[in-house]
Nucleic acid binder design. Structure first.
Lengths: 218, 218, 218, 218
DNA sequence: TATGAATGAGCATTCATTCAT
DNA sequence: CATGAATGAATGCTCATTCAT
């Protein structure tokens, strides 16, 4: 078993090699599982793709499920790192929403692998992937929180009743649209316009907010 | 070879027994593949769940992929049969939309198995499931067409420019929301309100349509 | 899994082939495990020795431990069948003891495989062989019972106190000598005289019985 | 290569650490092999039990078989050290036999591990354990010799013909009873009385000696 | 139609062993 | 001396598939 030292010392040359191997394995596993699912991905395939013998995979990870969990976690980290941080966003609420939708759609289009892995594992529901499923829930909770913040900021100028609740609903709906659009893109790649769907959703939600505000005024 | 074309004569007792076996196998396979994916479902498991020996499975189907395709097709048939036919829908456009959203959400909640199978297979993209993937595309094309009709009917009173195009976009978005809400329900069953999301989407889209109409008038 | 039909019908030609395969596998496994122990015997080795592919082994048996249990049970059956039945023994007690010692020693010398398997498994004490261990205990209980009967019959003419208790102790000791002599024969085959040990044990026990009787008389 | 010959100088701190590691490894290996046999004991298990990485095991020993041999040899040494030396035994022959039986039975009961290892390896007869088997034969030869001495001393007062030959047979039988009783204790721990068996064997042998003497007199 | 049996490739995992540091 | 990492063969077992009856 690969005991990762919690100690703070420089890794030896050998240990660095180990870290590199670990990375190669995770990358290969993540890619393959995103393509074929957990059950459809064999350790032999990961070994082939990563270039390391299967024995080495089991030196770094205790089991196939463990490897899946690591791949999900690692992917989540990279995904979050690729999103703009809140303080990098424009302060104007409308611009802010636009920027978030824009960057999220871009991330979906450019690095679809991780999202596919997420959805696949979430739907597969085998027996041995509880750790991975927990990681998925964590990822989504984080994403939802971020969307929530943005929606709240956006609805600020609209003085509608139950504004925070409304923001949460907007966030949930947006998350669903992201997942749905991604899947549509997968099944009908030619006729699916991810950005178009996001755009329309944004316009519709704002229209709804305006309408609610007008009702309130009346 | 299995399935001989459905000749038009009464099936003998023997043949009826065969039909029953076929049904049992498809049911078992559909349920298992929806749980564990194609790769994660073994013929042995289907044999156990259906109660028929694996040899019998190979009498009815040429291969595992063939069985998957049949399960998808069969599920699609049942799914469509469970939806209300167009002529059963109310003629008032608003009521009609409401009814469609209502019945679709109900179908998602009550018989989630088939949709899970659909999404799972669509995301898995192995090598051997082209037939199944084609079936999935057919199913979605039909669903989209139906949604299209409804959206067109709904937008009829709104005399916005590019109305048909708009209806198509509304249909696509709704399909995405259906998929996305279903997935959300899978990952966070407790905090996901499928009907709530549908409801909000409906209201937002109508608000958008109204706004577009108002812009036009101005 | 090989469902053995409890039904009383003639086995088909195919089923007979299956029974033959099962026998081949058990024979190979019994021989190998007696040579190398349970842990040291691989399914691949059993496959090679039996001439059947490993998949077939798992059609007939659920696991390696299951196979071991079957081999022990089968060996026990054959072993017992090879021993003379009580009613075949001479009625004269001394002759009877002699005959039993004689036939048991002969069985040990001629078919040592099963006893080796028994002792090996008994000493190995892994985790997965509870069924086999239970079988071993059953075998020994039977053997002890048989020896007990004989010892009781033998001590009948000696009117010593606690005769039955004494017979049981004689039986236990004889069982131990059988095991011990067998092991000695294994480690030092050239200098070990199994029959000689049995002979001496018999004489010593009879001498002891006589002495006890004499003490009683005094 | 490992073990350099024990040069006569104080071991450095480093070397002492090495000796300690060696001891830990041997202890772990001995215990595990006594439980699961040679084939059933993995280097990984020895590593875990001893707390030293598998690489270190291979620094101290050339191979797994080498480690087994060392464990057997080491166990034999300790076993012999635990037995009373001849000059510590009482001079009265009867007392002497009693003491020997007593101490041997005690050793069997208190430190059964080594004997189990011995018997297990003796029965297993793999390919790679010739060194260990030779060690076992040496151990038994020593044990037999010791028993021989004692039996000869014990039979001294009995002036029977072929006394030395008889002593050797008594020794062999006693050894067998030791092994057999130990095994019985293993299989039926609750109903086996090791000391009782030894006691009865002792009485029976003495009775036989007396009888032979009486015959001679007659 | 149905099924018991077989088959060999493939599965996840562990093995004994090596080696650079 | 010690150890983290690697390696590829072997492990027990399951797989999709075939086939005689």
């Amino acid at each position: 078993m690969a005991r990762q030292a919690a100690v703070d010392r420089k890794p030896t040359q050998r240990e660095e090699l180990g870290i590199e191997s670990r990375r190669k394995i995770i990358d290969a596993a993540g890619a393959l599982m995103a393509e074929r699912g957990f059950g459809g991905t064999s350790i032999a395939a990961v070994s082939k793709r990563s270039g390391l013998p299967s024995g080495s995979i089991y030196w770094h990870f205790d089991s196939k499920a463990d490897l899946l969990a690591a791949a999900v976690e690692e992917g989540a980290q990279r995904w979050f790192d690729s999103l703009p941080r809140l303080d990098e966003l424009p302060s104007d609420p409308v611009e802010r929403v636009e920027r978030v939708f824009e960057t999220t759609a871009a991330a979906l289009e450019e690095r679809p692998q991780f999202l596919r892995l997420l959805l696949l594992i979430a739907l597969e529901r085998g027996d041995s992937d509880e750790v991975a499923f927990a990681a998925i829930q964590r990822v989504r909770a984080l994403a939802r929180e971020r969307l929530n913040d943005i929606m709240r900021a956006t609805l600020e100028p609209f003085d509608v009743p139950g504004r925070d609740e409304l923001a949460a609903q907007f966030a949930s709906l947006t998350l669903s649209i992201a997942d749905g659009a991604f899947i549509a893109h997968h099944i009908e790649p030619d006729s699916t316009d991810i950005r178009g769907q996001f755009d329309m959703a944004r316009r519709a939600l704002i229209a709804l907010a305006r309408e609610l505000l007008a009702e309130e005024d009346a």
